[in-house]
Simulated assay, not measured.
Amino acid sequence: MITELDFSLDGFEPADAASERAESDLWLGDLTLLAEHHTTPNGSHSYVVAHDGSVTWGVPGEPQLVAIKIARNLADGTFTLESARHAQAAFAQNWLAERGCPPEKLIPSDDFLKPADDLTSQAEQRVRESGERYRVLDTYTYDSEPCETWALVRDSRATEQPVRVFLEEADLDGGTYTVREGAFADEQAARAWLDERPGPLPEPPANPATADHRTRAALSRSAGTSLSPKAGAQDSAATPSSANQPTRGRTL
């Protein structure tokens, strides 16, 4: 299992006060490495996703994952370091992707929980590759049984029901987790659902590209012919959540 984390900063000094402060805010003994990518051949940049165990002893609900970017100036022996806290791995990966890391380079190893199904993988891919599409409004992480995290976001591309909830539920016994996306008209409606859990997580409106793909597939089956698949958006529909109460994030 990947557990040891080394920033590889021996011989380097912080380039500015912000980098010195960011480094001092992270204690390697608290961090469990989930995924990392280092540029080659000179290793000038490092991108890391880690779990911060110290958060579990702090304020309940705080995000437990941290995304870290390190840029080393090999010529003058200085470095810059910036980090951000996230509730779910896909949002940490997105943050690093926006700062130059190829998203596919930061997939956690098989030593950790695995996506339970294709819908989970699709939801995480949407977040990883979303750029600045989702603005995070709030998160909550709960790490007792059953384990759950949620991220409340605003989708800048949505023309209807623009407030979205990404709900992650972990099955620690099975070694898997699911992620589902729900859609709401506003933040108040989303928070009401999270507080009360009156029913299944409301599915996002159908993506027109997805609907067209489904229509083509249905016509193909009814006509007994085969249409060549057309590249396009994957199905973003969520499936109902079985959660009855807020719980919190995946224990890593």
Rank of each mutant, 00 (worst) to 15 (best):
N244L: 14
A211Y: 02
E23N: 05
S24E: 11
P202C: 12
G174K: 13
K114Y: 05
R126P: 02
S241D: 06
V179H: 10
A231D: 02
L167S: 10
Q93N: 13
P240N: 06
T3L: 05
W150Q: 01
D171Q: 13
A218S: 14
F7S: 09
V55C: 13
A243K: 06
T80V: 14
P200Y: 02
L172Q: 15
A75R: 12
D16A: 12
T40M: 13
V127I: 14
G11V: 07
E169N: 11
H37V: 01
D76T: 06
E82N: 05
S222Q: 11
H51F: 11
D117S: 14
D173N: 09
A218W: 02
Q64Y: 01
L219M: 11
E187K: 11
H51I: 00
G58R: 12
R85V: 05
I68S: 05
E160D: 07
F12C: 11
A206R: 15
D195K: 13
E203A: 15
G199H: 07
R191E: 08
G199Q: 05
E98S: 12
Q122K: 11
D173C: 02
A50F: 02
F12D: 08
P103N: 02
N94A: 11
P63L: 06
L74S: 06
T247M: 11
R214M: 14
A97Q: 06
D25Q: 15
F112Q: 09
R248D: 08
A151Y: 01
I107G: 12
G53F: 00
F12E: 09
V66W: 00
Y140C: 09
P204G: 11
R250M: 09
V165I: 15
T159K: 15
G61Q: 07
D173Q: 10
D52M: 03
A189P: 01
V165H: 10
P41R: 13
K114N: 10
A84R: 04
H45Q: 15
R216N: 01
A217V: 11
E132Q: 12
S226Q: 05
A185G: 15
T80W: 04
L106E: 05
P108I: 06
D138F: 01
A218C: 09
